[in-house]
Amino acid sequence: MESVRVMPRPVAAVCAVVVLALLVVPLLDSRYLIDLFTEIMIYALFALSLNVLIGYSGNVSFGHAAYFAIGGYTCAILLTTYEWGFAPAFAAAVIASALAAGLVAWFCVRLTDIYFAMLTLAFAMVVWGVAFKWRSVTGGDDGFVGVSVPAMLDSRIGFYYFTLAATGLSAAVLWLICHSAFGRCLVAVRENRIRAGFVGINTRLMRWWAFVVAGTFAGVAGAIFGMFHRGMYIESAFWTESATVLIMTLLGGIYSFFGPAIGAATLFVLERLTNEYTEYWPIVLGMILVGILLFLPDGLAGLARKLASYRSRGG
């Protein structure tokens, strides 16, 4: 508990290596790997954002895809239909996600546990319904296809570095938020809401902020996703997408800051590899979920920690 803002040295070292490795990916000259890592980074940020809510404040959301979709659609529509510049469109998308999250959170934080989770799901389905029905704006279930992306992001490598910068910066900000006094308060709320209340923490407000932070960064991930695919589709707002990111977070480990990013990368790569050999990815996904729940309650990050302590004890 000694270091509040400074990363522990081993963590910082791993981060530096990962960033360096990501920096050289385009040098490998493989379009496939560039696309793969671009998408992994997007999902990693999406999962990290959800973990502010789940891991830090202890509120399980079943509707996190809504803010991803709002960010994605807003950015795509502003860029394409209204021909906004990149910077204002991107900023507006993030703000739209934040505002939507703020509004939904205002209702949701009045509830806890399963009621909270169900309400997040309900609001997410409203977002899905709007994307589905508002055909003239969102394209309905045809999807919003043909997003105009600014020239500087037109090249694959350019977009890759943009994604690396945006997700890296977002992850750094999330790290700071989670390890600030605010982050500590969230953990206190997670551990014992009543006691946290008695020591003077406004638990409802804290949970509101956690929701807003989570929604905002999901919006960042969504905006990048829409530009990367040059399209947004309603399935990005559907509850299955919320479930996917939830599983990513659980797989990585909710009690570790970087766990969800590891979970996102693992699940994403597994899905890609599985799809090459079989159409039955959902079966594999189901088995992974059962495996996590039964054997890895703290996810991959928890497993790594356990292995490390086992080795230090053994050696």
Binding site: Y32, D35, E39, H229, N275
Partner: peptide, 10 residues
């Protein structure tokens, strides 16, 4: 559509 787009790209 999103799965199809990802598959096509791959």
């Amino acid at each position: 559509p999103a799965a199809a787009a990802a598959a096509a790209k791959e």
